[in-house]
């Protein structure tokens, strides 16, 4: 819980500094994107730190590239 508190407070401080800058320049799409991205990232980070299992993108990569790797190694052994 303490970790969660730390992360959220850090992000709040950073966002409070950054969002007004984006407001000033009338960047509406950028602002939405920024908020979405920060929420996504902090969600991932807190979920990870609290021990929730998140699907690993490397597993998908492993699944796709293992056959290719095996074929190449088959040629070279």
């Amino acid at each position: 819980m303490l970790k969660f508190f730390y992360i959220v407070s850090c992000l709040l401080i950073i966002s409070l500094i950054e969002i007004p800058q984006l407001k000033k320049k009338e960047f509406k799409r950028e602002r939405m994107f920024y908020i979405g991205f920060v929420l996504l990232g902090s969600g991932l980070l807190t979920a990870n730190l609290m021990g929730v299992a998140i699907p690993n993108p490397l597993k998908a990569m492993e699944y796709i590239y293992t056959p290719i790797s095996e074929v190449v190694y088959g040629f070279l052994t």
Binding site: Y34, L40, L44
Partner: peptide
């Protein structure tokens, strides 16, 4: 403006 969100996502 992408630097902060991007670093949080890459960290996670």
């Amino acid at each position: 403006f992408l630097v902060v969100p991007m670093s949080i996502i890459t960290l996670s």
